[in-house]
């Protein structure tokens, strides 16, 4: 059996309406580019990137899903084993924001209750076309106990931060879980405090 070279392995699944920029976010993070004119994602795409956080190797398995309804049942099968979900909308598209409750219902139904969810407002480079105010999204995220971050896949704004902060949070939870398991029986998902991530802000 091969011992793979990492300390942690996390599954991250990106969800959200078609066209909000999920694929671009993943490509930006894993390949460092902004893909020109690629078609809509079919089914799910799978990518891996290993990052180092505080000397520990963290392997991130990133599942980029198609937003269209007809791929929903494929996408849903990935929720259960996901460690983190990146729920993405497009700040220049009110509609993509209004669909969020629907996505939350999906999460509620299919994801495990320990999953870390982060809400991402993408395309902040298009500030002049903004339709969803930051405050509104922040309030929404807070009400749903989600983290919130605004990004631009195009300008590479906050993209690294998104994934690295998420990895930090997952490591923190993994360590916490280990501790819990050692003394009392764990109550998964209960009383999980949501902290804004600060452990590894980037330069």
């Amino acid at each position: 059996m091969s011992m793979e070279d990492y300390d942690y392995l996390f599954k991250i699944v990106l969800i959200g309406n078609a066209g909000v920029g999920k694929t671009c976010l993943v490509r930006r993070f894993t390949q460092g580019l902004f893909p020109p004119g690629q078609g809509a994602t079919i089914g799910v795409d799978f990518m891996i990137k290993t990052v180092e956080i505080k000397g520990e190797k963290v392997k991130l398995q990133i599942w980029d899903t198609a937003g269209q309804e007809r791929f929903r049942s494929i996408t849903q099968s990935y929720y259960r084993s996901a460690n983190a979900l990146i729920l993405t909308y497009d700040i220049t598209c009110e509609d993509s924001f209004r669909c969020l409750p629907e996505w939350l219902r999906e999460i509620e139904q299919y994801a495990n209750n320990q999953v870390v969810t982060i809400l991402v407002g993408n395309k902040i480079d298009l500030a002049e076309k903004r339709e969803v105010l930051r405050q509104r999204a922040e309030d929404f995220a807070e009400a749903q106990s989600m983290l919130y971050l605004e990004t631009s896949a195009k300008e590479s704004d906050n993209v690294e931060k998104l994934f690295l902060d998420l990895a930090c949070e997952l490591i923190r939870e993994a360590k916490q879980n280990k501790l819990d398991n050692n003394d009392t029986a764990p109550m998964p998902g209960e009383g999980k405090t949501i902290s804004y991530l600060s452990c590894c802000s980037l330069n």
């Binding site: 089914g43 049942s73 494929i74 084993s81």
Partner: peptide
Amino acid sequence: DCLCAMINHANS
């Protein structure tokens, strides 16, 4: 994708 989805469900 269909195969992977069913493997996921089987696993579940």
